[in-house]
């Protein structure tokens, strides 16, 4: 049916059509996917400033950041010492306490259990830190996992001290 020389031209035409068509479909699908990513209003709210003046030593507050709780704990001297004195080899996820804080007195971390995302209870558990009621993970005064199913320490968000009494999370 086909003569030979015609064939190569036809192949090129069809290949080009298919390729370009595939590119077009890909480019059309992207907006449908990207619309589910955080929109510009969500991204704009990604930082929160917190005033620390009201927090007494030993107390903590929980603030909402990106829809998740952030624990801000003003630690007492004994809690700091307890956190610093731990032998790293005992830890399932070894991290030094000083690597988890910017100022020793202030522990700022995402209040989300690294197991399956529940919010741990403060001043509970066997290590005077946090205890997750969902599946029994124990965290110490530095928010490090000590016992239970959670794989890693509680996450430290990006934050900075704007001044001595204010931090900006995100």
């Amino acid at each position: 049916m086909d003569e030979k020389p015609k064939k190569s031209k036809r192949d090129f035409l069809f290949t080009a059509s298919y390729t370009l068509g595939a590119v077009g479909i890909g480019a059309t699908i992207w907006p449908l996917i990207d619309q589910m990513n955080p929109d510009t209003s969500v991204k704009a709210l990604a930082t929160t400033e917190v005033d620390l003046t009201q927090i007494e030593p030993g107390n903590s507050i929980t603030v909402l950041w990106r829809g998740k709780p952030v624990f801000i704990k003003r630690r007492t001297q004994s809690e700091i010492e307890e956190a610093e004195s731990v032998n790293l080899t005992e830890l399932p996820h070894p991290e030094k306490d000083q690597d988890r804080v910017k100022k020793k007195e202030w522990l700022v971390m995402l209040g989300v259990c690294t197991h399956l995302g529940c919010v741990p209870l403060s001043d509970k558990g066997e290590y005077n830190g946090w205890f997750c009621p969902c599946h029994g993970s124990h965290y110490d005064t530095s928010g490090r996992i000590r016992k239970g199913p959670a794989p890693t320490n509680m996450e430290i968000p990006k934050y900075e001290f704007v001044n001595n009494n204010t931090i900006k999370i995100g």
Partner: peptide
Amino acid sequence: IFLIILTTLV
């Protein structure tokens, strides 16, 4: 531009 090229090919 893309559509016109594709349409021509098709």
